[in-house]
């Protein structure tokens, strides 16, 4: 039977836990707002590069670029993006579970871990990693995306990989983050979408390409891949914070419930003690008469 003092200690501890959860939620909310701004700010570049790429691949026709070469996917590479930290609900484990499912289909897949959680997960399971990147920080720079893509692009061009995928949490909205697998290599030129868009506007004007459509396309392809990864990083960051926000919201509520229940039990114990003492006094008085 816990004593009154035990209950008081327990409630104190619950209260400080609740304070921490609340604080973490506030921090996550602020960071999520910032991360969402970053996602929005990065969108124009992604949209433009997508469009230009579509235009170029239409104009260039059948080009034989090493990054466009479609091969039988025997050796596959996965770039896995998670957070550096936990306490964000199922955010990391959802991504990692998706990876495990993918890897089950391609047992000799190469893995590139981005984020401490992914790295620790693979290390713990003794799954060899091609490369690992941790410590993303809050302010994600484009150069970081470039670093991540460097090796996979080179190896794909060299024919070591036959396909490269990125696995990350897509930011659907504040409450929903969807683990997503996106193929980045070979590049699917977005010509169909661009074509549809142009049909509405009438015939496409003839562009002057300097030095040539092929040359510009060669220059653009790696940038396009980097942009896709950069976007995935930004979305993952925004998702991480919103997942943590939701998780901490829940945790705050749970501590509230626990405090309530513990207080109830404490009061019951106290009441019992008082009743017992009263009985003793009444019993003692009766014995004196």
């Amino acid at each position: 039977m816990p004593s009154l003092r035990d209950f008081r200690t327990r409630i104190k501890s619950l209260q400080s836990t609740q304070k921490i959860c609340k604080a973490m939620k506030a921090v996550a909310t602020a960071r999520m707002a910032k991360a969402q701004v970053a996602v929005t700010a990065a969108r124009p570049y992604a949209r433009q590069i997508h469009e230009v790429l579509g235009r170029l691949s239409q104009a260039a026709g059948d080009v034989k670029h090493p990054l466009l070469a479609v091969r039988e996917p025997k050796k596959v590479c996965y770039i896995v993006i998670t957070a550096d930290r936990g306490l964000c609900g199922g955010f990391n484990s959802n991504v990692l579970r998706t990876v495990l499912r993918e890897v089950a289909a391609h047992p000799d897949a190469a893995l590139v871990a981005v984020g401490r959680k992914a790295r620790n997960f693979f290390r713990f399971r003794r799954m060899p990693m091609e490369a690992e990147f941790t410590g993303l920080g809050e302010d994600i720079k484009f150069a970081f995306a470039r670093q991540i893509t460097k090796v996979p692009i080179e190896k794909y061009a060299a024919g070591e990989y036959d396909a490269v995928y990125v696995v990350y949490s897509k930011f659907v909205n504040i409450l929903v983050q969807q683990p997503t697998v996106v193929k980045i290599l070979p590049v699917d030129p977005p010509s169909e979408q661009a074509g549809q868009e142009e049909k509405k506007k009438g015939p496409e004007p003839l562009y002057i390409f300097e030095p040539s459509a092929e040359a510009v396309l060669y220059n653009l392809l790696p940038k396009y891949i980097e942009t896709v990864i950069f976007h995935a990083l930004l979305e993952s960051k925004a998702g991480e914070h919103s997942a943590r926000m939701t998780a901490m919201e829940g945790a705050t509520k749970n501590t509230e419930d626990m405090i309530g229940r513990t207080t109830l039990r404490m009061n019951r114990v106290r009441q019992e003690g008082i009743t017992k003492e009263l009985l003793d006094i009444v019993g003692g008085a009766a014995a004196l008469e």
């Binding site: 170029l56 562009y207 002057i208 390409f209 300097e210 030095p211 510009v216």
Partner: peptide
């Protein structure tokens, strides 16, 4: 590049 330039894509 002045206004009314021909469509152009270059590096």
């Amino acid at each position: 590049i002045l206004p009314n330039h021909a469509p152009l894509i270059t590096m």
